[in-house]
């Protein structure tokens, strides 16, 4: 009898597959929740207005992934006018930098998609632009650093 039992698998021919047709279909879990949820540790987002440039994130980072750049536009604000630049060729998305952040300005977003042919695209200054909420003020967009400025340091 056990010879015929595997043939039971044939009944799956008539079933609807559970395959996620990815580019066309979203990833849903068993209850229909859309994934990734807010908890996913994806790329960083940093509120440049709230950040005080305390360098704590760079100290806890064991991968030496966080360096700092000066932003002259932020002169006169509280704290220092340096802001973190994250090298995603080093980052392991552990989130220790966000947990230690005293102002909670740095956090990880569920945004994880970055496919590129140029490795220099993986070093940039996280800003509010890639955060999950689109309704932030967009004035900060102009201080997003062009990754190409960092070529020689990479």
């Amino acid at each position: 009898m056990s010879v015929l039992k595997p043939l039971k698998a044939w009944k799956h021919l008539a079933r609807k597959p559970h395959t996620i047709r990815y580019p066309a279909q979203e990833h849903l879990d068993m209850e229909g929740t859309r994934l990734p949820t807010d908890r996913l540790r994806g790329f960083h987002s940093n509120d440049l207005e709230k950040c005080i440039g305390c360098r704590m994130c760079g100290q806890i980072c064991m991968n030496d992934a966080i360096t700092y750049e000066e932003i002259p536009e932020l002169e006169g604000k509280k704290g220092k006018n340096i802001r973190p630049v994250v090298d995603y060729g080093r980052c392991c998305f552990c989130g220790l930098c966000t947990d230690i952040c005293p102002t909670n300005s740095l956090h990880l977003t569920p945004n994880f998609k970055l496919v590129s042919t140029d490795k220099h695209d993986y070093k940039f200054m996280p800003t509010q632009l890639i955060t999950k909420n689109e309704d932030y003020e967009v004035e900060l967009d102009k201080v997003i650093f062009d990754a190409k400025e960092y070529k020689e340091k990479f």
Partner: peptide, 21 residues
């Protein structure tokens, strides 16, 4: 290298994006 995928690990969606790219 032709295509880089970001993430540690990249999610399967990221992997598929790399294939599409």
């Amino acid at each position: 290298v032709d295509v880089y995928v970001g993430g540690c690990m990249p999610r399967p969606e990221g992997v598929m994006n790399a294939f599409l790219e």
